[in-house]
Nucleic acid binder design. Structure first.
Lengths: 180, 180, 180, 180
DNA sequence: AATGAATGAGCTTTCATTCAT
DNA sequence: AATGAATGAAAGCTCATTCAT
C-alpha cells in the first residue's frame, strides 16, 4: 500500500483539480485518504499549502509521462500532438468533465505567494521544454519547436478551461487541427 | 455615485479575479464597497452566488467592449488581434499581474452547478462570436473566422494563466505572433 | 439583562483569573455566557485577545471601586488598608481560593505583546495612584503616600500569589500588620 | 554534556517562566532541547506535568543558591537583601524582562491540582525559611526574622509581576528601600 | 431599504499523548 | 533507551447566511 504521505497528496490532487485550493477542505482530503486529522501535519508541516505543492508536483510528473508516452511512438510532431490530446481528453472524461489543468486549478486560487507562483511557472516551463524536445527530435528546428510547444501549451490550457465550462472533452480532441 | 448593487458587483469582481470564488470572503467585499453586513441580501437575494454571476457579467461586457474597441479601427484581422492583446496586457499590468481570465477565475472554483457552467460557457461563446464577426467583416470566410476566433480565444485563456504564473504580461503581448 | 458583550467579558474574566489566558478555551467562555460561537467576533473583532483586555478592564475597575469603598470611610490609612484586605480576602474566599490577581492572571501568560504589557502596567499604576490619593487625604505626605501605596501593592500581589498556592486567604488578611 | 532529562527540564523552565504552563507547547520544548518526539515520556512518564514540576524544582534550587550567595557574605540583613535583589534584577535583565517568578509562572496556570499547589507552597516556604535563617544568623530574633522574610518574599513576588509588566528591572532593584 | 446582531457549521491548525518498531 | 508515525480532541477563528428592528 502506498505511504500515508503519497495517499494524501494524490487524493488532495484529485479534489484540488475539481474545486480549487480554497474549494477543498482538509477534512475531506483526510477522510478520502483514510488518514486521521493530526497526521497531516506530521507529513506536511506547513499543512494545506505543502499538500497542494506536493499534489501539483505529482500531477505535473504525470503530465510529463503522458507527453513522453504520446510522442515517443509518434512518427511526426502532428501525430504526437494528436495522441497527446486524445489521452488528455480521455483523462478528462474519466473525471466526468469536472477538472481543468491539473496544476493550475491546484495552485491558482491558492495562497498568492512566491512559492506557489514559482512552482507553477516552473512546471509550465518543464512541460513546454519536454514538448519542444520531442519536436526537435521529430525534425523541427529549435526555434520552431519552441514556438510549437508554446502554441500547444497555451491552447491546451485554454482547452481545459473551455472543456470544463462546457463539460465536453471535444474541445481538447479537436485541438491538433487548430495548432498544427 | 454608482448604485450599491453595482459597487458590490465591481468590487467582488476585482477580488474574485485575483483569488477565485472560494478565496474571497463576503465580508471583504462588503468592507471594500463600504456596504453594511445586512445589505447584501437585499441586492443579491441568493447571496454570494448571485454576486459572482453579476460580477462575471460585468467583466464579460467589459471584454466585449475591448474587443470592439480593438477591431473597429483595425485595418485587418492581425492588426485587431495586436491591439486587443496590447489592451489586455495593459489591463493585466494595471492589476499588478495578479489576475487571470476575469470570468474564469470568478466562476471556476465556484459552486459546481449548471448555472455557473452555463453562464461561463455562454460568455465564452459570446466572446468567440464577437471576434469571428469582426474577422468576417475584415475579410475572412465564416469558417476561417470561426477557426481564428477559437484559436485566439484558447491561446488567450492559456496566456492569462501563464502570465499570471509568471507575473509577466509579455506572454499576452506576444500572442499575435503565435496565432496569426 | 446585560449586553452580550458585557456578559462575555465578565465570564471570561472569572475564568482567566482562575486558569490564565492560555488555560481557558473560548468555547467554555461562550458556553457559560450562553453565547453562540460566531457572535464573539462581532463584539470582539480581535477575538480572545480583545476579550482578555476587556475582562481585565472590568476587573481593574472593580478593584478601584473596592479601594474607594475601603478608604472612603476609613479614619486613618491603616484602617483603610485593613478594610481593603478584608474585602479582598472575602472575594478570594468566595471564589474558593482559586484565583490570583484579577488582571495579572488574565494578562500575564497572554500573548506577549506591547498592548498587553502596557494595559497591565497602566492598571497597576492606576491602583497605586488611587491608594496614594487616599493616603494623602488621610494625612500622609505625597512622598510617603507613594511609598506606602507601592509597598501595599507589591505585597498584595505577592499575597495573591501565596494565598492561591496555599488555598488560604489568611495571607491577605494578615497583610496590614506587615506593611503598615 | 547534560543529560537529556536535565536539558529538557531546563529548556522547559525557561519557556514556562516566560509564557506559563499552557502557553508553552511540548513540541517547542523538544525542539529547543534537540530531543525527538517520542522521547519525552521515557524521562517524564507523566508528560508535561512532570516536566513542569522538574523545571520548577530546578528553578527553586537556583533561587536558594542565590539567597545563600547573597547573604553568606553580607554584614547585616539589609546588605544581604540588597545583594539578593541586585542579583535577581540582573537575572531578570538577562532574560530581556520577559520573565516573572520562576516557579509561580511555571506552576500557576498549570493543571489546578493538589500536587501543583503543594509543590508551589512548599517551594515558597523553603525560600522564606532560608531567608529567615540568614536573618537570625545576622542578629534578628526568630519572630522578627520570620516577619522580615515574609515581607521580603511577598514584595519580591509583587516586584517580579510589576517588573515584567513594565519590562523594567528597577522595581526589583529598589525593593530593599521599601522592605528594610 | 437598511442595518447591526446573531448563528452554528465549518475552517486550518496545534495539542498532549500513545504506539510500534 | 530511543524514535518517527499515528491519533483525535480541542484550539481559535471565519464563513455565508438569517433575524429582528
Amino acid at each position: 500500500m502506498k505511504s500515508t504521505r503519497t495517499r494524501l497528496a494524490i487524493e488532495a490532487g484529485y479534489l484540488f483539480q475539481q474545486r480549487g485550493y480554497h474549494g477543498v477542505g482538509i477534512s475531506e482530503v483526510l477522510e478520502r485518504a483514510g488518514v486521521p486529522k493530526g497526521s497531516l501535519y506530521h507529513h506536511f508541516p506547513n499543512g494545506k499549502a505543502d499538500l497542494a505543492l506536493a499534489a501539483a508536483d505529482i500531477a505535473a510528473e504525470e503530465v510529463l509521462r503522458i507527453i513522453d508516452a504520446s510522442f515517443d511512438q509518434a512518427g511526426d510532431y502532428t501525430n504526437g500532438v494528436t495522441t497527446f490530446c486524445y489521452k488528455l481528453a480521455k483523462y478528462f472524461d474519466i473525471h466526468e468533465g469536472k477538472i481543468g489543468c491539473p496544476v493550475s486549478a491546484t495552485l491558482h486560487g491558492g495562497p498568492d505567494n512566491a512559492t506557489f507562483r514559482d512552482t507553477l511557472s516552473r512546471i509550465f516551463a518543464q512541460w513546454m521544454d519536454r514538448i519542444a524536445t520531442h519536436a526537435v527530435r521529430l525534425g523541427q528546428s529549435p526555434d520552431d519547436a519552441e514556438q510549437s510547444a508554446k502554441r500547444l501549451f497555451l491552447s491546451l490550457e485554454g482547452s481545459w478551461t473551455l472543456a470544463r465550462a462546457r463539460g465536453d472533452s471535444n474541445v481538447i480532441r479537436q485541438l491538433p487541427a487548430l495548432v498544427c
